[in-house]
Amino acid sequence: MSKMIEKSERFVQKIVRIQQFISNIFLVFIMSIITIDVLGRNIFNQPLKGTFEMTELGAALLVFFALAVTHKQDDHITIDFLVDRFSEKVRNVINGLVEILIACIVFFMSFYMYENGVRTMERKATTTDLAISIHPFIFVITFALIIFALTAIFKALTYFGLAVNKK
């Protein structure tokens, strides 16, 4: 049982690392297109069509792809001072429960994000200038959210493990 958990955790971590890489690519991408657009507009009178909407989409993808790794590294902002006063065991239990709560909320979020994607697909929503379909992006984000939620579950397991081991 614990072997299987370990294996799936490693698998999820691999995806998290790939997502980090994609997130970085999107960052470089939006930096580049804005620069190309500004140069093109001012020097050649030829702006880069769709820069505005590609920046919006690029930033959104950047954010959701980076959420899981950010969470894995405990980078999401929390207020610690009260919980820090509890014993280590209580702290681990609280942290584990909080991770479960995070996983639940993010799973719910991904589910309704998926529904949003389906609606967007049915309505054939696109971007303005390039008429790119929006729903594939929402589905990709749904996936990224699921990975985020899984990361939280594995963290919960780690915390509960610590709580049990440290008697």
């Binding site: 960052l27 939006i30 930096m31 804005i34 505005f52 920046t55 919006e56 989409l57 690029g58 930033a59 959104a60 950047l62 954010v63 959701f64 719910f108 979020m109 589910f111 309704y112 994000m113 998926y114 529904e115 949003n116 992006f137 929402i138 984000i141």
Partner: peptide, 26 residues
């Protein structure tokens, strides 16, 4: 309420005035 859970994250993250924040950080 649950619909909001599925729409707000994307519409906030894809708003132009915010999408340039990562570039300032970079």
């Amino acid at each position: 309420a649950l619909v909001q859970l599925g729409t707000t994250p994307f519409s906030t993250a894809s708003s132009y005035s915010l999408s340039v924040i990562p570039l300032f950080i970079l």
